[in-house]
């Protein structure tokens, strides 16, 4: 069983978000970076569990610059067997997807995993694009994944419910809460992660059809209006007459 887990590096969830150069670039100064939580907690851990159970191999892949190698080593510490870094600084989901698809095309993976979205650009796009490039079935927001021979048994989150599906391998999935439990790398994992193979692959040329042109911060709230806990009629009145939402 060959499994590929595509991991992204994102600002830490507590990062203060600000922009440089007239709002065109994310201001990375002082920001801690982490592995995108969905990629780490659910996709990577489930891939490792499946590979441990069936005797497979897990490759972690990141499209990013050399500075991302700390996060890639963390994936190796959690349990990936080897890693690939496609040496580029992606600016869009489309670019990332193209790089991943070009690399994965000839590798014969049984399952390609993504997290359900990244917590920075919130696209939820890359998995679907890679699946299309490779002509593979794709299920997003999978909250459960088991294998039955060459069939993946999945649950996926839908609006107000859960859908149970079977998908023929090879396939592409994006992982959501429920698929696995977060794993803290142990000492042995951290030690071996240093010597596990990490290969660096050049990107293919690709013209992006979408470009971020400007980032802004949402308008600040005017300030909270406090209502006495003894006067809930007043709160209801405000919601009705002032906010006009009930």
């Amino acid at each position: 069983m060959k499994l590929l887990v595509c991991i992204s590096q994102t600002p830490d969830t507590t990062a203060k978000v600000s922009f440089n150069n007239d709002g065109t670039d994310f201001n990375a100064a002082g920001v801690q970076f982490i592995m995108n939580p969905y990629d780490e907690w659910y996709a990577l851990v489930r891939a490792c569990e499946l590979s441990e159970a069936t005797g497979g191999k897990v490759t972690a892949l990141n499209v990013g610059p050399a500075t991302n190698e700390t996060v890639i080593r963390k994936a190796l510490a959690i349990g990936a067997d080897d890693a690939v870094r496609i040496d580029a600084d992606p600016k869009s989901a489309a670019y990332t997807a193209r790089q991943i698809a070009e690399y994965a095309r000839s590798q014969g993976y049984d399952i390609i995993f993504f997290g359900k979205e990244t917590i920075d650009y919130n696209g939820s796009e890359v998995g679907a694009m890679v699946a299309e490039y490779l002509d593979l079935p794709y299920v997003s927001y999978a909250s459960k994944l088991d294998l039955n021979g060459s069939v993946a048994m999945l649950e996926r989150e839908i609006e107000g419910g859960i859908e149970t599906l079977e998908v023929d391998l090879p396939c592409v999935i994006s992982a959501a809460k429920g698929m696995a439990e977060q794993r803290i790398p142990n000492m042995k994992g951290i030690m071996t992660s240093r010597s596990k193979p990490l290969s660096v692959v050049p990107p293919v040329a690709y013209d992006e059809p979408v470009k971020a042109t400007k980032f802004t911060l949402p308008p600040a709230k005017a300030g909270v209006k406090l209502v006495s806990p003894d006067n809930m009629d007043e709160l209801v009145r405000l919601l009705h007459e002032e906010a006009k939402i009930i």
């Binding site: 989901a93 489309a94 997807a97 979205e117 696209g123 939820s124 796009e125 890359v126 998995g127 679907a128 694009m129 699946a131 299309e132 490039y133 794709y138 299920v139 997003s140 927001y141 996926r156 989150e157 839908i158 609006e159 994006s174 992006e208 059809p209 979408v210």
Partner: peptide, 20 residues
């Protein structure tokens, strides 16, 4: 949930840019 599985595929099939 379904749109997220589809939009990226449609974009690639049509050589189109996607904003999700």
């Amino acid at each position: 949930s379904t749109g997220k599985s589809i939009s990226g595929r449609v974009a690639i099939r049509l050589d189109a840019g996607l904003v999700s």
